[in-house]
Design a protein around this nucleic acid. Structure first.
Lengths: 156, 156
DNA sequence: AGTGATAGTCAAGATTAGTGACGATAATGT
DNA sequence: ACATTATCGTCACTAATCTTGACTATCACT
């Protein structure tokens, strides 16, 4: 091994946190959506995950989805349009606030959310096996702490 | 704490790998680019990072940058145009291959790359302090293994 | 009632990503 | 030497995505 290796090689061997996150994010996203599609679920982009991931069974307001996912209301709006089109959610008036609408998952939407959660869990189990249960659990605890710290720093 | 908590709350408390990755990626990216801009570097988007991150001191070919960053040649082309505009890189003919051009960082570009690496390192040190050096080192080893596994799975 | 803030939508623009084709050059096989 | 095939970077075009500003209806507070 050369003492003064090329920068690109170093970045491959000892990637920084940003590079690691992007590798993992894109790989996980792609695997999730390819699996869903292969299983016959209607094709949706990763962007729709931003809505589905934060959706409550009893429904969630579009503004909350925007805040949770960090996207603009406008984007959430079109995302919801497409999810309605795909039969995953429906818009219901919010009894608490007549300005607002609750985005409520349909049965098909719930099914998709459950399946998506299960696939993510399977991906994690694969890594847990590869790394060892103990080490993986510790990794995930640390990751959760760091990511939550990063996120709260964002919001400030 | 309710036994049957809402899904969105659960996702906040026990996020999956995809959510964690996106939180960390976006936070880190934003901090990096905001810091760079605050220090007077010309404003560039996160996308340019895909080029700068993998750039070698001696220069790298556009096609290699496309492969490393996983983006299309076309995208890399415009990114390079903008980086040339910003004075960070220049196109030089590749003596080995007259079809190709080497993308070589200018002195200003090198300065930016060094600074960017330093900021990332500082961000990591902050998390290391927060988590404890020992735990952080173990976290990063695990993260590196998992992300590299995910990435190689991608390429297959 | 009157005021300012908020929810969701409409519309238009800017930015970014993805595709196919092309001229130039290189690599390969004969 | 020559023809064939593959690769490098670019051009032109389309589609997807993000961003911004404005607007209506409703809410919360006085």
């Amino acid at each position: 091994m050369p003492e003064k290796q090329k920068r690109s090689a170093r970045k491959q061997a000892e990637p920084d946190l940003g590079i690691l996150s992007s590798w993992l994010l894109f790989a996980v996203q792609r695997e999730l959506f390819e699996t869903m599609e292969r299983e016959g679920f209607e094709k949706l982009g990763p962007r729709h995950g931003a809505v589905l991931a934060y959706l409550d069974e009893e429904g969630t307001r579009a503004t909350d989805l925007a805040a949770l996912s960090g996207q603009h209301k406008q984007v959430i709006g079109t995302l919801i349009d497409e999810l309605v089109e795909a039969g995953c959610v429906e818009r219901r008036p919010d009894p608490q606030d007549r300005r607002a609408k609750l985005i409520v998952p349909t049965e098909a939407g719930l099914e998709r959310m459950r399946r998506s959660d299960a696939i993510m869990a399977a991906i994690e189990r694969r890594y847990a096996k590869e790394l060892g249960e103990e080490d993986y659990a510790q990794f995930k605890r640390a990751f959760t702490r760091i990511a939550q710290a990063a996120r709260s720093r964002e919001r400030a």
